[in-house]
Structure formats: structure tokens, C-alpha cells
Amino acid sequence: MRRLLLIVPLLLAGCASPAWNDADYGKKAGATAEAAASSVALVRLAVEHEARLTRPYLQTLLTETATALGSVDSQFGAVQPPSEQAVEVRAEITELTSEAAEQVQVLLDEVRLREIAEPEKAAADLAALADRLRAFAERHPS
């Protein structure tokens, strides 16, 4: 039983564990992109309907997503790439996730000040970004 208790946190920490080889690293990158795409798609859905939602709600939702994207970003940045090729994969994925984090942050700032300036344009941008993230995830299936 005592041993089991030791194993639990180790396994739970699995998502931030080091990657051993390229394939493993690719999988992690794919999973990260998948999670980011899901967050971006959700923000897009909310932004599309922003006129019908309350401001405190939008603000909370965007803060939540911005934090989640930020932590995905930093978590993945902490994994040591095992090869040259993996370094390129990392450059690509971190670019995408930071772009996502940035877009959400901009929207959040707008909501905090007044309201989203151009909801249609923001939704379209987010849609495009989500597509790119999904495409990346498909190239690196987890």
C-alpha cells in the first residue's frame, strides 16, 4: 500500500515527464496542440455569441483559458527536445500556442476595458488558428 501511494504522484506527474525519443516528443507536441485547439475553439464559440453573454462571465472564461494556454506553453517549453528535429517541432508548436495565448489575452484586455471591438474578425482569426493547431496535431498524432 505504501508503495502504491508513492506511485500515484509519479504517474500523475506523467504529463510533464521528460520525453525519451523523437516519437515520444512528437506525441507530446500533438497532445499539446490538441488541448490548445480545444481551448481556442471554445473561446471562438464564446466570442461568436459574446453579445448574448454577460461581461463577468466572459471575463472569467477568458482568464481561465489564457491561464490554461499559458501553462501549456510553459509546461511544454520545459521538456528537453531529444534531437535537432525535435527542436524544430518545438519551435513550431510554441509559436502556435504563444499566438493562441496572445490572441486570448488581447480579447481579455478588450473585455476588461469595455467589450470586444470586432467580434466577427476575432472569431475568424481564432477559427484559423484552431485549424492550424488541429493540422499540427494531425501531423503528430498522440
Partner: peptide, 22 residues
């Protein structure tokens, strides 16, 4: 259908907002 995975309270209440607004 939009391939969104929900994992927070803020996200899970969204359908009601989409259906009936504020």
C-alpha cells in the same frame, strides 16, 4: 462536434448561455 473538451465550470455552463443568452 467542435472537438472542444470541457474541463472547467466556466466552460460547462456555456450551452445554457448559447441557448437563452444572459
Amino acid at each position: 462536434p467542435r472537438m472542444i473538451e470541457v474541463d472547467t465550470l466556466g466552460q460547462m455552463v456555456l450551452p445554457a448561455g448559447l441557448a437563452f443568452g444572459q
